[in-house]
Design a protein around this nucleic acid. Structure first.
Length: 155
DNA sequence: GCCAACGTTGGC
DNA sequence: GCCAACGTTGGC
């Protein structure tokens, strides 16, 4: 079992949208970065995922979801109308993958990135690296547990 | 809104 | 295959 962090710009998909989704489940489409895609392909059913709001004031971890379907082709890639369209992709050569995730928990209080930065336990976390832009990134079990601890300490 | 960091593209 | 130019991400 592995742990991950998925970034989402709440203007396009927020944790509120996630809560309203049927079965609180959504496909995680639109990943168009090879490293992020490779991580998506490693994700297994049951893996836990920190849900992160980027581009927000302040950017925060807002909840936890879990992988309920492993990587499969992202059809938006060959849909010319999609904003995720990639002319190099096709059903025969999908290039891009997505997974399905189900929302497990919404934190009572979002955990802002500046709090994460104060935590010695989270030193080395990819999210906190200067210039980090990966939208799908691995998290260690220790880092994941510590973020949950922060969430539980907040209420 | 700024800008540093990063990934991609394309000319050579 | 190098690398400059460009577009995007995302914290601040």
């Amino acid at each position: 079992m592995k742990y991950w962090l998925f970034k989402s710009d709440p203007d396009s998909f927020s944790i509120r949208d996630f809560e309203k989704a049927p079965k609180k489940t959504t496909c995680w489409d639109g990943v168009r970065n090879y490293q992020a895609r490779n991580y998506l392909r490693e994700a297994k059913v049951g893996d836990s995922v920190l849900f992160y709001h980027s581009q927000e004031k302040p950017p925060s971890v807002t909840g936890v979801c879990e992988v309920v379907k492993e990587a499969y082709p992202d059809p938006a890639a060959w849909s010319p109308k999609s904003k995720y369209f990639d002319p190099k992709a096709s059903p025969e050569n999908p290039i891009w993958a997505m997974v399905d995730v189900r929302l497990v928990r919404t934190f009572a209080q979002p955990i802002p990135i500046d709090l994460l930065r104060t935590q010695p336990e989270l030193e080395g976390m990819e999210l906190l690296r200067k210039g980090s832009r990966l939208s799908v990134q691995p998290v260690t079990s220790e880092q994941f547990a510590h973020v949950l601890k922060l969430a539980d300490a907040q209420k």
